[in-house]
Nucleic acid binder design. Sequence first.
RNA 1: GGGGUGUUGGUGGAAUUGGUUACCACGCCGCCCUCUCAAGGCGGAGGCUACGGGUUCGAUCCCCGUACACCCUACCA
Length: 501
Amino acid sequence: MSIRVRFAPSPTGYLHIGAARSALFNWLYARKMGGKFLLRIEDTDLQRSTEASTRSIIEGLEWLGLDYDEETVFQSDNAPKHRTAALQLLDEGKAYRDFTPREERADANIKQGIAERARAHAAEGQDHRSNPYRDLTKEESDSRAAAGEPFAVRLKVAREGKTHFEDAVYGPQERDYAEIEDLVLLRSDGHPLYNLSVVLDDIEMNITDVIRGQDHLTNTHKQILLYQAFNVAPPRFAHLPLILAPNKGKLSKRKHGEVVSLTTYRDRGFVPAAFRNFLALMGWSPDSEQEIMTLDELTEKFSLAGISRSNAIFNFSESDPRQWTDAKALWMNAEYIRTMPIDELLPMVKAELRASKLWREEYEEDERARLEKTLNLIRQRFHTLKDFSAQGRAYFSDDFDFDEAAVKKNLLKEPRLRELLPALAEKMERVEPFTAETSEAALRSFAEEAGVKPGLLINAARTMLTGQAVGPSMFEVFETVGRERSVRRLKSQEPWFASES
RNA sequence: GGGGUGUUGGUGGAAUUGGUUACCACGCCGCCCUCUCAAGGCGGAGGCUACGGGUUCGAUCCCCGUACACCCUACCA
């Protein structure tokens, strides 16, 4: 049978980067093996699931370029089937009714509560098979149910034995039944629970390989018990190491904010291919040392054997805005921005400029070549697409800000510049043609005549033309900005006015 | 409390299924280039491969123990 994998997020919020990576790995595996990649929305938790989250998941996959096959499955649609299946296990004696009244749990310190209860049970000598309703006769169970007494349905796990499976990443796994509780399949209100639903849906969708986070490694044993109860051969499993916060804790929106959300990367100017590339290297590495890879290359090189077993730390600093996310991700984005084909970059820059009202229709046709030239010049030192509208603003609009430090350093330090620059402008006006070479020659000879160092004029011009102290080679800037605008900006009095006020 | 999984320089990952000075990328520092900042080139700092034992002629790699981290242990997913 051909490979079928799925990405099964629960729509209880933004798309988490860890989940996005799971999706990526599943997608890569499916494409590599010539199989299908399916999407299943696990919206069984009605309280927390939202349509907005579902939409954000779908948008996120689209942004990453991960297309999926077949119809999206919504787990909640299958709830009736899951219920029927659980009841069937009840009939077959593989599950039993638990009439223990439901215990409400406070979400806050739930982990602690579980541990405390486990400790208490251990002290009392209670094990996982101590449920008083486990061995109730069928007659009594039926009659209590018929009388309307509420019950949960639990799987009847055998007293002796072990479950085994071979994890493609973590190797052979086994777990003694004694360590597995009689898990609840159906809540007393009839609502099917996670482990049941996952198994049933994976069976129905003919999933052959389950690739998911390591947090499910131990759940897998419970699920295998369910496969056995349903007489279905379990799929292959591959668990992925987790992505942790810098303090090795869980990465969560509550604690870490927007860095964990995939949409953040889209909104802050990441090139999808770059982030995807970065994500692929979180917990996986190819045989070669090549790290920059296209989607096709990733697909070709991908293998479960290349997945590592230790959790990865997503490195970022909450206090340093320049390191708002992992430095390597930022580096990779810059790498993509400066090296990707201009045709592919252009639409992204266009969207960015549009959003900042810097896009002009002429860029589409008449000024297309000039635009490309500009982009090639400025993209060399940009890190995100946002830079095109921020640091790059002066290349698209006359309405840009002067960096205070730049003005101080490059203009105010030398009072003569106030006369020299307009004079330089006069000279530039007569340069024909106006190119990097001719403007350089003009500036250098002007500097010599004026008896100043060329660097003084170059740096001053940079600040006059772009508002900044840093940027591309000045003569390239002259040519790119064009004679008319260059001259106008050299003559501007704005920086001096601004400093006087 | 029980169980599971893991631990290679600051971070992500390698190291021919035990064999010389532990490799690559990011980050950091320096030099070169230079009109600035990047990019690029060159070089450097940073590791007793968590710790302690054992097996072996030899251990990052195999075994045991300890510590730490994470996950599961829910009528959450």
